[in-house]
């Protein structure tokens, strides 16, 4: 089995790019692969706890909780990007790590594939 590193910059609400990233991670984990999931820029919104599900907006918190439970999925948010947007450590959903950008680069070192999903 392989390791996939996914970097996402797109916001949770406004496009479905982040949905695609999470769905891809889910598919990879179901196949037995490991996934490192890095969010920076507007994608840091994904790590915010207390998200409510509305039919008009993407809601990925439940999928993320399930992915964390597999033990094959690691998600880390860019701390500076989050802080700049007012998402502090206390606001972060359980399971997430908070690191600087070098964590993402380190993750690519051992990745079999790296996929970057750009932002807006």
């Amino acid at each position: 089995m392989g390791k996939l590193t996914i970097g996402c910059f797109s916001s949770l609400v406004g496009s479905v790019s982040l949905d695609f990233g999470v769905k891809l991670a889910e598919a990879a984990v179901k196949k037995g692969h490991e996934v490192d999931f890095w969010v920076s820029s507007n994608a840091t919104m994904l790590s915010k706890k207390g998200q409510k599900a509305f039919k008009d907006y993407s809601h990925l918190a439940k999928t993320l909780t399930e992915l964390f439970a597999t033990g094959k999925f690691k998600a880390v948010v860019c701390e500076a990007c989050a802080e700049a947007r007012g998402y502090h450590k206390d606001d972060t959903m359980e399971g997430w790590g908070r690191r600087s950008m070098d964590w993402y680069l380190a993750s690519t070192f051992s990745a079999d594939r790296v996929l970057l999903i750009g932002g807006d």
Binding site: F9, S41, S100, M101, D102, L105, A106, G118, G119, D120
Partner: peptide, 17 residues
């Protein structure tokens, strides 16, 4: 957009990887 800034800041982060 923030894209080019992110590219440069991520590349620079290699210094502490």
């Amino acid at each position: 957009t923030e894209a080019s800034r992110l590219a440069l800041t991520h590349a620079i982060a290699s210094q502490t990887v």
